[in-house]
């Protein structure tokens, strides 16, 4: 059989039709490579999780998924950046309570509105806060801490990794629940806070479990964790020790507002699958966080719940970022 010109034409018409048809099918799909924007420098907790997810999702979605770091201004630069990207699922952002719950309360002119500019996709992990003291400290538990603070009011200081961070506000919750006026000293991140704790420069520090777990119990002693259940088998929660407070931080994924529902669902499912895969879960646990994942509705509920929880605390602190 010979390929005549006619036959060639027929073939190419078929080909064109096929391509058009395929294009039609893909209309609900996401064009081009998908990027997960991490508004922090590479190497941090949220960056690592985003990279782990990206690695899994490229197989689930069948297209390249890359992580882009856009650090600056405690995450605000990256958030502003994603706000302006196309709402077609090709750009996602990793967010946390500081960006989505605290910032709207402490900035009078915030360049984004968490509710109007973004749609939640999935919560991908949570992390507990811990209260720790230097390993050389005589304080053994929360009860002992409260007694000690009442005896030494001049030493009633606590350190947090940053002013206006959730550990800062959690510390205020602790002080309120214990009925003690505590002075807050902010450090320039978790590392300097840890150094100060280990060197006995400050009587106690509040930070995420992830930052402090490795040093327990050689250099610091964790007195309590902030979740509803124990994070460490031998360390009771605040609730168990008589302080009625709890709270966790989280990382979640959002996309620019007006992204089609079908695309959000597709991305959400891909995240749930990625986090639930055993190796990713295991790595998140190794980092000291919890691989707790929810879909878009679940994440929206978490954000709403945390707004209600933290708004009175932040407002009572009088903290303003400008």
């Amino acid at each position: 059989m010979k390929f005549t010109l006619k036959r060639w034409r027929f073939c190419s018409v078929l080909l064109v039709l096929f391509t058009l048809f395929a294009g039609q099918c893909l209309a609900q799909d996401i064009k081009g490579p998908i990027k997960i924007v991490v508004p922090y420098p590479a190497g941090g907790g949220s960056d690592i999780v985003a990279r782990l997810c990206a690695d899994k999702m490229k197989d689930t979605l069948g297209q390249p998924v890359i992580v882009e770091n856009k650090p600056g201004a405690g995450g605000r630069v990256g958030t502003e950046y994603v706000k302006g990207l196309p709402a077609d699922g090709s750009a996602m952002l990793v967010v946390n309570p500081a960006l989505f719950v605290v910032n709207p309360l402490v900035f009078s002119k915030l360049s984004y509105d968490p509710e109007k500019d973004f749609e939640p996709v999935a919560q991908i992990m949570t992390y507990q806060f811990v209260l720790s003291v230097p390993a050389t400290s005589p304080i053994k538990d929360i009860k002992g801490l409260i007694e000690w603070l009442k005896k030494n009011p001049k030493e009633a200081n606590f350190g947090s990794p940053a002013a206006g961070s959730l550990p800062h506000f959690f510390g205020l919750l602790v002080g309120k629940a214990a009925g003690i006026e505590m002075v807050h000293a902010s450090y320039n991140g978790s590392a300097p806070l840890l150094t100060a704790l280990m060197g006995n420069q400050i009587p106690m520090g509040i930070d995420t479990f992830e930052s402090e777990s490795a040093h327990h119990p050689d250099k610091i002693r964790i007195l309590a964790t902030s979740g509803t259940s124990r994070k460490l088998p031998d360390v009771p929660t605040f609730k168990e020790q008589g302080l009625d407070i709890e709270g966790v931080g989280w990382n979640g994924i959002v996309v620019p507002a007006k992204t089609p529902k079908a695309i959000i669902d597709k991305l959400s499912a891909a995240f749930v699958k990625a986090i639930k895969s055993p190796d990713v879960s295991e790595k998140i646990k190794q980092m000291g966080s919890d691989p707790i994942v929810t879909d878009s509705q679940g994440f929206a509920a978490v954000i709403k719940q945390d707004r209600e929880k933290w708004t009175p605390v932040v407002q009572a602190s009088g903290f303003k970022a400008e």
Binding site: G43, I48, A214, K219
Partner: peptide, 13 residues
């Protein structure tokens, strides 16, 4: 961060 990715918590241990 690289150590943590490999499941090694940097620290005294």
């Amino acid at each position: 961060g690289a150590m943590m990715i490999h499941g090694i918590q940097p620290g005294p241990r």
